[in-house]
């Protein structure tokens, strides 16, 4: 009995464990300061995991899934900084029985049906127009551009004490009709900013 319970727990544990091993690895390599590239890579590993976690702490209106065929679409707009990491992180994962689908977009027009859209730093200059296009959609915009959240994005990554933290623009989230869990809210730094670009 105990053995069976334990083994079943182990099978359940395995993905999380992999994740943690990954983050531990990331942390360990983070300490090796000499290698900036590997530090950056481990940051992206963490950010990729965070993108996955966001899917569990945010509720999208149910009609958004009918367009994507039940899958939860995580999009990357612009130059992809993750490389294979994002696909590796999300491979085989589901959120509330929905498969996760990674899509890469070159143009914002195509990205409107995403649930989460990571806006690459390469789009820094076009951010305002991108956000304008997304106005009225239920896309959770995430980015690592400086002051991403206060500039109208919804969640912006930043690094603090060598840890990846994030800001949340509550106004923008509310305007996108997304329900962000209190658990997520308490972790993020709440920033004030325009609910929409050009404000």
């Amino acid at each position: 009995m105990v053995k069976a319970a334990r083994s079943s727990r182990w099978t359940r544990l395995r993905p999380a464990l992999l994740l943690c091993v990954a983050s531990a690895f990331a942390l360990a390599s983070d300490r090796a300061r000499g290698d900036d590239a590997s530090a950056a890579r481990s940051d992206y590993r963490i950010k990729a995991a965070y993108l996955y976690y966001f899917t569990t702490f945010v509720d999208w209106p149910s009609e958004t899934f009918s367009k994507s065929g039940d899958a939860l679409v995580i999009g990357v707009l612009g130059e992809d900084p993750f490389g294979a990491i994002l696909d590796e992180t999300l491979r085989g994962k589901t959120v509330k029985d929905r498969p996760l689908l990674v899509k890469r977009f070159a143009s914002i027009k195509e990205a409107r049906d995403s649930h989460i859209l990571f806006i690459s730093s390469s789009e820094q200059d076009r951010l305002a127009s991108i956000l304008k296009v997304l106005e009225g959609t239920t896309v959770l915009t995430v980015g690592e551009i400086d002051h991403f959240a206060s500039r109208g994005g919804e969640i912006g990554f930043r690094v603090e004490d060598k840890k990846v933290r994030f800001d949340i623009n509550v106004t923008a989230v509310e305007r996108a009709r997304l329900k962000v869990s209190a658990q997520l809210m308490k972790l993020g730094r709440i920033v004030e900013g325009p609910g929409h670009p050009g404000g």
């Binding site: 963490i46 995991a49 976690y53 702490f57 933290r165 994030f166 869990s181 658990q183 308490k186 972790l187």
Partner: peptide
Amino acid sequence: ANCLSALLFNDQKSAED
């Protein structure tokens, strides 16, 4: 359950709170 996010997002302070 309340600590889950703090655990996932590696936020020790929040977990302690």
